[in-house]
Design a protein around this nucleic acid. Sequence first.
RNA 1: GGGGUCGUAGUUCAGUUGGUUAGAACGCCGCCCUGUCACGGCGGAGGCCGCGAGUUCGAGUCUCGUCGACCCCGCCA
Length: 607
Amino acid sequence: MQRTHRCGDLRATDAGSTVTVMGWVNRRRDHGNLIFIDLRDRSGISQIVFDKERNPEMHSRVEAVRNEYVLAVTGRVERRSEGTINPKMETGEVEVISTELRVLNESRVPPFAPGDANLNVNEEVRLKYRYLDLRRPEMHANIEMRHRVTLAIRNYLAGEGFYEIETPILTRSTPEGARDYLVPSRVHPGEFYALPQSPQIFKQILMIGGMDRYFQIARCFRDEDLRADRQPEFTQIDLELAFPTEKTIHDVVEGFLDAAFTAAGVTIERPFPQMPYDEAIRLYGIDKPDLRLPAMTEVKDFFPADAWETLQVDTALPVVAIRTPKVGELSRKERDDHKGLLNEKQAKVIKYFDDIKRLEKTWPEAIAKVRQACGAEEGDLLIIVAAPKKETATDTTDARRLHRAATAVYSQAGLLRLALAQKYAARHKVFDEKQYKFLWVTDFPSFEWDEGANRWTFAHHPFTSIHEEHAGLLAEGVKALNDPDSALGAIRARAYDVVLNGTELGSGSIRIHQQEVQAKIFEALGMDEAEQKLRFGFFLEALQYGTPPHGGIALGLDRIVMILAGAANLREVIPFPKTAAATDLMMEAPTPVTDAQLKELSIGVRK
RNA sequence: GGGGUCGUAGUUCAGUUGGUUAGAACGCCGCCCUGUCACGGCGGAGGCCGCGAGUUCGAGUCUCGUCGACCCCGCCA
């Protein structure tokens, strides 16, 4: 038997023709002498009719057929009579009157029915029986969208002159950044490969190799704890190109995102707005602003100085208003609940005033200005956030220190802004509407102070160019490596993130292509010459052989598809995802291995 | 590493202050049914209450430990 049609494709225009369809039994309705079977394949569902009068032998065989049996059915497509048409089904105008039935395979009773329209089953069960879960139309839709998005990106980039190039999966461990997944070498006892956290060095080497434009739908591995939007192995759209400006790269990314979203049936606006990191912090308190919600507004100057004295606010630091739209009147309890939105650490950095009406009694003019500056409308919630006054006044003479303190206020206020948005999401409904607000965040700090390690570390990765005019700061900064207020903190990188609705989709930069600059950066990170040579010797050498200026970016494919699918976690758009404990419930991975395997790898396991 | 929620029939859940025979719905099995499409009717089977200790005359229920799922913090250049 040869399949002639797919189940979901039959239409009234097929009436009269004889077809053969194959698929799974979605549901069976047994009326005794008349049996209906909904047959399902990837394309959809068709109703097959088995009539005892017309074919008693076949009818008796179909009585034994159960859910998820795999059938091949030949029959005549007939237009359904008036009153039996099912408008809820794509194929509901027709049905197949079966003339031949072959049971291609039987099925045990499944732990859950993939054909159940309102499936309510624990994810643990879904993951264990992933093959059944994948039969569900919802999963088909997500996987299909992922395919379409990926294909659109491939086609777009190929059209822009990018080569798709594979890079090694077995590579070298780099101790900085995320924890590596390690693979023992049999040939070199005691030595290990690492799975790539990203193809970063390889793609830069490809540029040095004159490949001009590279991309890869690349699998990356990071041995860190999981989140709803983080898997230990994930897929990046990774690209790099020679002789770029920031604009070249932004145009390419916007181009393929446009193609990808179009493939998913979504129109997006271009060009994406841009915002320097420092402005993002000042307006949103975070480096990945969600533009669906209003920014914070500086309101300190609207109040007379004595107001801040009364309210016990530190006037050296910012005072901002947070507006949450369309919240309406708050009950006493709801207002009390705001306290719970701050953790202990946050409460040290900021205090808030959420009873605007009370403030208004004392400072009516100030509050009027606040409302106007925020663009507040009736029903919007306004909360004023400031730093609590401390025993010793904040030092305003040290600009870098002051900046650090102000940044802490902005970021804690930003977290409160998001917590409020989340708390009142059901009321403002901003998150319900299908809107896609893209943003480029640019000019990230090159270095950030690591409190724990008490040293400077890179904010993006150590191959990121700094702005040329900050070369002096770098020279100054390397002389004060142990000072959190060193000049290093003021250096801005030629780095950019693409952000969508408060989610970081991707991150990239113009790379360093001069060996001396690269060595200087390593030095700023506390690596002496010997250590540089040990860890990146080959790369520093490569940079000396005519490296072209180059830059690139990597975007999380899983996250893009997740957002397009409206899914709450990545597992919905990954066919075989891992659990929060990084296990595979279907394969039951990881597993112990035999002593013989370990011996061959010169590995002993500590009990 | 830390915090939270959850774990009872194949599935999703209920289970009172610790009390006698642990329930419901869907699914499953049998019989009936020629126009259903979440078909319907009648009947039936199905339980290591995650696992292990403890408290108690008595534990699904209380305590401790442990395993697993999910979410968050740390972590993720």
